[in-house]
Amino acid sequence: MLDLAASLAARGDSALSTRHWVQAVRAQALAGTGDIGGCQKALDAADEVHGLTGPAHNGGWLRFDGSRLAEERGTCYVELKRPDNFVARTPTR
C-alpha cells in the first residue's frame, strides 16, 4: 500500500512535501518490520524535503516540512533496536 502511495505522490505537485511525507510514513512501517536498509532509504528520501524551495505545503491538511524528521529518525531506530544508528545517520543542518 505504501509503495502505491509513494507512486501516486511522485506524480503529484513536486513543489509540495507530499512525496517526502509518504517516505517518512513508509520509514515507520519499514522500521516496524525490521527492514533497516529500507527504513534508512525512506528516511533519506524524506529528508530531501529540506531541498524544496518556497513553502513545503499549501496550507491544506498536510503540513509536513521536515522539522520533525530527526524525531522520526530516532523513533525508527529505537523501533529497530538500533539507537546507535541515529547518531551516525542524522544529517547536520
Rank of each mutant, 00 (worst) to 15 (best):
M1D: 05
L2M: 08
L2C: 05
A9M: 07
A9G: 09
A9L: 03
A10Q: 09
R11S: 10
G12A: 06
D13L: 03
D13Y: 01
D13H: 01
A15D: 12
A15Q: 06
S17H: 03
T18W: 09
T18N: 09
W21P: 00
Q23R: 10
Q23N: 10
Q23H: 12
Q23M: 12
V25R: 03
A27T: 01
A27C: 04
Q28S: 04
A29N: 05
L30F: 06
G32R: 01
T33R: 11
G34Q: 02
D35E: 02
G38H: 04
C39T: 11
K41V: 12
K41Q: 14
A42Q: 05
A42D: 09
L43V: 11
D44L: 00
A46Q: 03
A46M: 02
A46E: 00
D47N: 11
D47E: 14
E48Q: 15
T53E: 15
P55C: 13
H57Q: 10
H57K: 07
G59L: 03
G60T: 13
W61R: 14
R63Q: 14
R63P: 00
R63C: 09
F64H: 02
D65Y: 00
S67C: 05
L69G: 04
A70H: 12
A70G: 08
A70V: 10
E71M: 06
E71H: 07
E71N: 13
E72K: 12
E72S: 08
E72I: 11
G74F: 12
T75R: 02
T75H: 15
T75W: 13
C76T: 11
Y77I: 04
V78A: 09
V78C: 05
E79I: 15
L80R: 02
L80Q: 01
K81R: 06
R82M: 10
P83V: 12
D84L: 00
N85D: 15
F86M: 06
V87D: 08
V87C: 13
R89A: 15
P91C: 03
P91R: 03
T92Q: 15
T92K: 14
T92Y: 15
R93T: 13
